[in-house]
Design a protein around this nucleic acid. Structure first.
Lengths: 353, 353
DNA sequence: ATGAAAGCGCTAACAT
DNA sequence: ATGTTAGCGCTTTCAT
């Protein structure tokens, strides 16, 4: 309520964001001319344009993405939901996504779920409120219908390291069944007949697929042998590089017929296992051959260097981003891309002694 | 233009986002009642509230962050600009940031600069358009005034792994001078008198500080000795774990008085150096003692295990996020927090042979 | 307890 | 070539 006797003093607030109206005022033009300078510069007279641009610089104009969004323009934000962005695998994945998004002027909103369906749901909700251009997700596997719901509300969803499984979404996957089989066949080829599968943490889909592949190899693919190898299943405490390996190693060695080789669910578990064995005076691959999974950067540089199953991590991210940004193109069809992992033989596997 | 003779048919577009208006229509109330259910539920009659909530679920209502922002409510987005989010150090930092943001319902927008001032500027611009709650940045070091400009326009900026240096911004820093000195004193204590400082990539501020600290140690802190050790400076090709080490090792060993120890700018460089030495049949620490920096997760698990300078990485991120979110509190004063790194002695350093 | 209406900064359709 | 204006979805103030 302004008393008629009081002169209203407008205090210049330095922190206030300057908008197109401020630019227009400073340049002595209308807002639509400012809009034209921004969106359709060809149509503006040279002199006017430079005057407007000067005004923008002078007052520190920054376009409001919120306002553009409200007008219906596409968002520059893309969500990424991974199990843990500090995990070197997902960090690399996110970088691949970022690299592609950057070319399109988009940015990455990175969330971690720690494999909790609750955190996943929360992240999805928060992301959806931002009306992102889309969401790339490494799903925990629970409640896949939550993802199709997001998609049906207009936010494209791309699955990463997961198969479509009837969700009708785009997906970028890795043939983990093949990965498991490659590991198994490599070991069987070296003469191993009792092989352990060492996991850490819950059995999410990609883990199950690796086990299936390993099991397929152990069953033997050619008809000459009844069964190529026996499989034993072991689960360590999920603890990064830490030494949760004692129980696993005991369980392995206390058997009447201890395995001579182990396929690990990832490189981190493989390294932990190797260190645990060393601590007991056992040698890799002398006493046990070990295969990792992922071929993280350190895999080639630990000693002994890790035999592992490699997949093109950054490329997976890049392709997922590409798929996502293409979702709004006319005639887009959901598709599933499956990458084939490959075996990298280094020094943690050897012939059965 | 609607011809009076034509009946306008509204086609239900499943992909259209449902807003508060849709909820209101479905529940038979006004938008302000819907708004009250959302923002001020106590004021709404029980029956009405549950009817509105049912309507929200039924039509799949998702609040628009853009519209709220436009109304002046605080954003839930926080930008993070690091040198490379796939680098395990920054990945861990981002996770620390994310963890704290999550408690406040905020999300992380992660950008990488690859140390390019251009990419940094671009990221800043894109971020600023999103009107984030603030930006946490590991600066490339070029054009610090760009950062104060952002800050003066109302987007709080927190420096990470950098000192304020007269910028009048909040900062979370590490005393790298101390880190360099700890490394140097450790080696000098072991009898080393010729020490190499091995870097990779440009000399950004944190690197300079480490060198300064190492130099201080080499100059000797107690008065009994004129000079504790000689320093030699070496720079490898910046190439991650890769083998850009040959030239450096040659440069080191071809000297008349080769160094007996090396302080590396980070753990990755240290590991690469160690592998390069091994490839030439040289032993660590037998022929050369090596100190890393950062204490990344793999440092304890490579062989020989890395002696290194540790800092609380995730904590740095968490504190930076905390500082950032506190910027809009009444009476906020910019502050600088400096963390003290510590020496972790493992197996890559030993007494001079 | 509920509703009407203005306005945040921008874009786009239209008018001049 | 430039200007006028409606409206995106929400919050908030002010009625009722």
């Amino acid at each position: 309520m302004i008393d008629a006797g009081i002169v209203r003093v407008v205090v210049q607030d330095a922190r206030r964001r300057r908008g197109m109206r401020d630019v227009a005022a400073a340049a002595g033009v209308s807002v639509s001319t400012v809009a034209n300078v921004l969106n359709n510069p060809a149509v503006v007279a040279e002199a006017t344009r430079s005057r407007v641009e000067a005004a923008m610089d002078a007052i520190g104009f920054v376009r409001s993405a919120a306002a553009r969004q409200l007008r219906g323009l596409p968002s520059r934000l893309v969500g990424s939901i991974t199990l843990d962005q500090s995990n070197p695998f997902y960090a690399e994945l996110n970088r691949g996504i970022e690299d592609h998004l950057d070319e399109a002027g988009c940015m990455l909103l990175a969330c971690s779920t720690d494999l909790s369906p609750d955190k996943e749901l929360r992240a999805l909700r928060l992301l959806e409120e931002q009306s992102p251009r889309g969401v790339i997700i490494t799903p925990t596997g629970e409640q896949p219908q939550r993802l199709t719901a997001v998609s049906s509300r207009g936010t494209p969803v791309v699955l990463l390291d997961a198969r479509q499984a009837g969700t009708d979404l785009c997906a970028v996957a890795v043939d983990h069944e093949l990965g498991g089989r490659l590991a198994g066949e490599h070991l069987i080829g070296l003469g191993h007949r009792r092989i352990a599968f060492v996991t850490a943490g819950p059995d999410i889909e990609p883990v199950r697929q690796r086990r299936d592949g390993l099991a397929a190899a152990s069953r033997g693919r050619d008809r000459r042998q009844e069964r190529a190898a026996d499989l034993v299943e072991l689960r360590m405490a999920p603890a990064g590089f830490a030494e949760g390996t004692d129980a696993v190693i005991s369980a392995m060695l206390d058997r009447a017929d201890p395995p001579t080789a182990a396929v690990c669910v990832n490189d981190v578990v493989a390294l932990a296992l190797i260190r645990g064995l060393e601590a007991r005076g056992l040698r890799v691959p002398g006493d046990l051959s070990v295969v990792g999974y992922d071929d993280l950067p350190f895999a080639a540089h630990v000693r002994p260097a890790l035999t592992t199953i490699a997949r093109p991590i950054r490329e997976l991210g890049r392709v997922a981003a590409e798929l996502l940004l293409s979702e709004d193109a006319a005639g887009h069809r959901h598709q599933e891309l499956v990458f084939r992992p490959r075996l990298v033989v280094r020094s943690t596997t050897g012939p059965i002694g």
